[in-house]
Amino acid sequence: MKFSEEQLKKVEEMISHYPEGKQKSALIPLLHYTQQQNGGWLSAEAMDYVAELLKITSIEVYEVATFYSMYNLQPVGKTVFEVCQTGPCMLRGSDDIVAYIYEKLGIKPGQTTEDGLFTLKTVECLGACGYAPMMQLGPDYREHLTKEKIDALIAEGKAKAN
């Protein structure tokens, strides 16, 4: 893995947010960026490269990447449904949403469809309790979910892949 000049400029900008010598603070934003540039997940190679960029050891990257839930350490589908299942979403029917996705795509939480298009994850509270049930879809939220909205999101995911 190697970043282009343009990508490296982005890395430099991230590091400029901190005082001299505190570049390790850029680790979390840089892992987000690397994951996004690497097809949605962090390979060991990608993490080693991040360590090199920040002049820290690889283990310092691994211990962070394994701690935070937004980093995928395995490849994921092109579209990832992250359905919130904590209390307030449960009160508004998040279980039905998870069951409906299984009905439509045959995947349970943690699984990816055979064609590699969709991954389903269940996640804990995303701070959208008043707009439940909801899911995270890439950098955005999809709220007030219904079966019809899930159908539309599946169609959208398929269209994106073509």
């Binding site: 603070s25 850029a26 934003p29 962070v64 839930s69 996640v123 509270c125």
Partner: peptide
């Protein structure tokens, strides 16, 4: 500064650790 999915980082010293890249 973005976090990366950890409720615990709302605790102020955990937040500081996270902001230091840990």
């Amino acid at each position: 500064q973005p976090g990366a999915g950890a409720y615990i980082c709302g605790e102020e010293t955990a937040l500081i650790e996270s902001l230091e890249g840990k």
